[in-house]
């Protein structure tokens, strides 16, 4: 403060050898020193940079938030659809369709084959010793892997006609006729007894 005050006083005459003093500087308030301007500039720059970073972070956060909301909304929709699907395919309803429309019966033990050779049985007319053989669902011939369910009466009323009377002894061990069937060439047998029905008519 002292230096600023002395800038308004005249130069001392008692020092003749002294060079002529430089013109008096302008007041400090009108000409700020360069260091202060730099500080202000730096502050403004830092503030601007900080604000831009802050704005960018804020925008990013908003985007993330929006995405999270969309995800939550989608998750809610997925849950709703899953629940609707679960209700539409609820097991009591499937049972009702089965009982009233499809009338599927449980698989007969005779439809489960122990060895591949038994598949040949299905190429023949129903053999006598085994009684009425279960027929495939929609076509004649060897059953597909998914055709283990045969059409018939509702399961509770008559689950398997062939299971019949409780006194019937179940066959024990492999049926010898199955081995014969497996060893016999199938083509002549089929030719001798062509199956009837639309599938047979379509075959040349």
């Amino acid at each position: 403060m002292r230096a600023m005050t002395s800038g308004h006083e005249r130069p001392a005459r008692s020092r003749p050898g002294a060079k002529r003093a430089a013109p008096a500087p302008r007041p400090a308030a009108r000409r700020p020193p360069p260091r202060r301007a730099g500080l202000v500039l730096a502050t403004v720059l830092v503030a601007l940079a900080g604000y831009s970073v802050s704005a960018a972070v804020s925008a990013e956060r908003r985007a993330v938030e929006r995405l999270a909301r969309e995800n939550a909304d989608l998750a809610r929709q997925v849950t709703a659809l899953r629940v609707e699907l679960a209700i539409r395919m609820r097991l009591p309803q499937l049972q009702r369709w089965n009982d009233e429309v499809l009338r599927l019966a449980p698989a007969d033990a005779r439809q489960f084959l122990v060895r591949p050779a038994e598949l040949a049985l299905y190429a023949l007319p129903p053999p006598e010793p085994l009684g009425p053989a279960p027929r495939p669902v929609a076509h004649r011939g060897p059953p597909s892997p998914g055709s283990s369910i045969a059409p018939g009466p509702p399961p509770a009323s008559a689950p398997a006609p062939a299971l019949g009377a409780p006194g019937d002894p179940p066959p024990r061990g492999p049926n010898p006729s199955l081995l014969l069937v497996a060893a016999t060439p199938a083509a002549p047998t089929l030719a001798a007894d062509p199956p009837a029905g639309p599938a047979a008519e379509a075959t040349p």
């Binding site: 449980p106 698989a107 489960f112 283990s148 399961p155 509770a156 689950p159 398997a160």
Partner: peptide, 9 residues
């Protein structure tokens, strides 16, 4: 019997 026939498979 019916339960076993349907459940076992």
């Amino acid at each position: 019997r019916n339960v076993v026939l349907r459940v076992a498979p």
